Deep mutational scan, measured.
Amino acid sequence: TFTSYQLEELEKVFQKTHYPDVYAREQLAMRTDLTEARVQVWFQNRRA
């Protein structure tokens, strides 16, 4: 599960791009204290 802060950050990036590159995902992962893999999976699920 994600915190409301994490979801907010993820959604913010999703609004800009549905396909963030690895750099964007790593920045987001650091900001949200998630792994890059978790961020990647979240985007895959969000796009589905």
Rank of each mutant, 00 (worst) to 15 (best):
T1F: 11
T1K: 12
T1R: 13
T1A: 14
T1D: 09
T1W: 14
T1E: 15
F2M: 10
F2W: 08
F2T: 03
F2K: 02
T3F: 04
T3E: 07
S4Y: 08
Y5H: 07
Y5N: 10
Y5K: 11
Y5A: 04
Q6S: 02
Q6H: 02
Q6M: 06
Q6F: 09
L7D: 05
L7P: 02
L7M: 10
E8R: 11
E8P: 09
E8L: 11
E9P: 00
E9R: 04
L10W: 00
L10Q: 01
L10S: 00
L10E: 05
L10V: 02
L10F: 04
E11I: 09
E11G: 02
K12T: 06
K12W: 07
K12M: 09
V13N: 02
V13I: 10
V13C: 05
V13A: 13
Q15M: 10
Q15A: 15
Q15R: 11
Q15Y: 07
K16I: 11
K16S: 11
T17M: 10
H18P: 15
H18E: 08
H18V: 06
Y19R: 04
Y19V: 04
Y19K: 03
Y19C: 06
P20W: 03
P20H: 03
P20I: 05
P20N: 01
V22P: 08
V22R: 15
V22T: 14
A24Y: 07
A24E: 15
R25G: 02
R25W: 04
E26D: 07
E26M: 13
E26C: 07
Q27F: 11
Q27W: 11
Q27G: 06
Q27V: 10
L28G: 00
L28H: 02
A29R: 06
A29D: 12
A29H: 02
A29K: 05
M30R: 09
M30G: 06
T32N: 04
T32C: 09
D33A: 11
L34T: 05
L34M: 09
L34C: 03
T35D: 10
T35V: 04
T35Y: 03
T35M: 04
T35C: 03
T35A: 04
T35P: 07
E36N: 06
E36G: 05
E36L: 11
A37I: 11
A37T: 07
A37P: 08
A37E: 15
R38D: 15
R38C: 11
V39H: 00
V39W: 02
V39N: 01
V39C: 01
V39I: 15
Q40F: 13
Q40G: 05
Q40N: 15
V41W: 15
V41K: 14
V41G: 11
W42A: 00
W42T: 11
W42I: 04
W42D: 00
W42E: 01
W42H: 01
W42M: 06
F43Q: 00
F43M: 04
F43N: 00
F43D: 00
F43I: 02
F43R: 00
Q44K: 12
Q44W: 08
N45K: 13
N45R: 15
N45T: 08
N45I: 10
N45Q: 12
R46A: 07
R46H: 03
R47G: 03
R47H: 05
R47K: 03
R47N: 08
R47L: 09
A48L: 14
A48I: 12
A48T: 10
A48Y: 10
A48S: 10
